[in-house]
Computed example of a mutant assay.
Amino acid sequence: MMSWDVFVMKEKYDFEAPEEEQPPVPPLGQRDEIIEKLTRRLPNLDYRDKAWGFLEGEGYSIEFNTGDEELVHSIMLHVRGGGEVIERIRLVCETLEAYALDTSDSGYIDFEQPEAAEQSWKGFQRYRDQVINQDN
């Protein structure tokens, strides 16, 4: 099933600069510490599988692809469904002192002005619904 993907990382990556000029991106932290922080802030977050967390909310679900490594450099959030998800993503970033990259437009989510992220999320939903309706 299609998802709206948001990449969570410790520092912003400059897509304009050549790769060899990019400073190394610091890790988010140790996986167990990240899981502990996130489950404290998001009590519904199910992290029975340390590589994949799962959060179900009103009308939406978010999978947290944490990976198999003990040192986590980034988390990919796979958002599905509908509803209000931007606040959940903000909570994740606030908890981890991290940034969220909307992979659909390669822009960082500005939680002070979340309208662009809301529009991207709604745009994904319209696109998804159009694709699903074409298949029927």
Rank of each mutant, 00 (worst) to 15 (best):
K122V: 07
S106H: 10
W52V: 06
I35L: 09
A17M: 08
E118S: 07
N44Q: 12
M2A: 07
R126S: 06
E70S: 14
E115C: 02
E87G: 13
I86H: 03
G53W: 00
E70I: 11
S74H: 13
G57I: 02
F54K: 04
P27R: 10
L55V: 01
T103S: 08
D5Y: 00
S61C: 03
A117C: 05
E58Y: 10
F111C: 06
H73M: 15
R40W: 14
I35G: 05
W4N: 03
E19L: 13
R128F: 08
W52E: 03
K37N: 13
F64A: 02
I86S: 02
V92S: 04
G57A: 01
V72N: 07
E33Y: 12
C93A: 06
Y99C: 11
N44Y: 11
H78A: 08
L55E: 00
D110N: 08
E16F: 11
L42A: 01
L38D: 05
G67H: 02
P27V: 10
G107I: 06
P27M: 13
R41I: 15
Q119L: 10
L101Q: 03
N65K: 06
N133W: 14
W121E: 00
R40K: 15
G83A: 05
E69P: 11
D129Q: 09
W4F: 08
E97F: 12
F15N: 06
D105F: 01
Y60E: 02
Q119F: 05
S61L: 02
Q130I: 13
E56R: 11
N136S: 14
R48T: 04
V92P: 05
R88Y: 13
Q113S: 10
V8G: 09
V8S: 09
Q134M: 15
I75H: 05
E21V: 05
P26M: 07
E115I: 04
D14F: 03
L91I: 15
L28T: 04
F124W: 10
M2F: 10
Q30M: 15
Y47C: 12
R41Y: 13
R80Q: 04
G59V: 00
G81W: 03
Y127P: 05
D135H: 13
L91C: 14
R126A: 06
A51L: 00
R31W: 04
E112G: 10
D110W: 01
P23Y: 07
D5L: 00
F64I: 01
E56G: 04
Y13K: 14
T39H: 01
A100S: 09
Y99H: 14
S106K: 10
E112Q: 12
W4M: 04
E58S: 11
A116Q: 05
K12Q: 07
E97Y: 11
L45A: 00
G53L: 00
Q113A: 11
N133V: 14
A117Y: 01
G59R: 01
S74M: 12
E36I: 10
S3L: 01
W4L: 05
D49Q: 04
W4V: 02
T39S: 00
G107N: 14
E36H: 12
N44R: 13
W52C: 02
G67T: 03
E70C: 10
P114T: 02
E20M: 12
Y47S: 07
G57M: 01
M9I: 13
M2W: 08
E87R: 11
I86C: 05
A98M: 07
G83D: 04
F15R: 08
E21T: 09
Y99L: 09
W52P: 01
